[in-house]
Amino acid sequence: MGDEVAFVELDGVGMTFRGRTGAYQAVRDFNLELSEGEFFCLLGTSGCGKTTVMNMLAGFDAPTEGQIRLEGRPVRGPGADRGVVFQGHDSLYDWLTARDNIAFGLRLRGMGRAERRSIADRFLNMVGLAGQGGKHPSELSGGMKQRIQIARALANDPRMLLMDEPFGALDAMTRAVLQGELSRIWSENRKTVLFITHDIEEACALATRVGVMKRGPGGTLKAVVPLDLPYPRERTSDAFMASFRRVHELIHAEIHPQ
């Protein structure tokens, strides 16, 4: 294990923003290794630096300290190997239909129309939107848009998926439905996932491991809790409750520091 290269490695990663108001160290000494196929939930209070970590892993921002490696190679900018599902749904292309949004990455690679269409329809089906492919984003509900985002990222067949509070803006019922669907999809394809949330129950329902962040400035990983529970998870089971309580205590200490 020791000299084997981890799938994803964040090695002493830090980010200091420099602006007119001075320097702000958002993330400091962040260390994490992800193995292939795991579902890692990054949990933390608002403003602790979750999005900052994801942006660095996605390659949108370069860390000011440390290094991020994917299969041993340093990350230098965004790439098709890391699919991203964004916090809002402004990232969808309003001028394209749902189907063409999903097939966007395939089009970039020059794939033919018919093949694109059949792949897009398969992923529409996977996220429960069969027959809705002809609609434009403005004709879809918030939950449907997030499904399209997930399908768009998956259809491009990335090595891993980065998801920034993808269900944060949805009502509790829609959120539970989408969590179930995501869990099912992940069980089938076992892509590596980094999933950001501030919802403890969501993290416990989805993750193989939950990482809890310390609040900023200098946000960093405080503890990692492995969740060895079978899928689909019984949210009322004793084992689930016990995990929930453990994570809750860690978070609680961040919200109400002594």
């Binding site: 390659g59 965004p78 699919g83 991203v84 990232s91 990455g105 970039l108 990335p158």
Partner: peptide
């Protein structure tokens, strides 16, 4: 986010301009 989404779907600079 529209531009970033294209970048992590594999778009080069020209594709980001022409398609987004």
């Amino acid at each position: 986010d529209k531009i970033r989404a294209a970048q992590c779907l594999g778009a080069n600079r020209f594709q980001v301009f022409a398609l987004v």
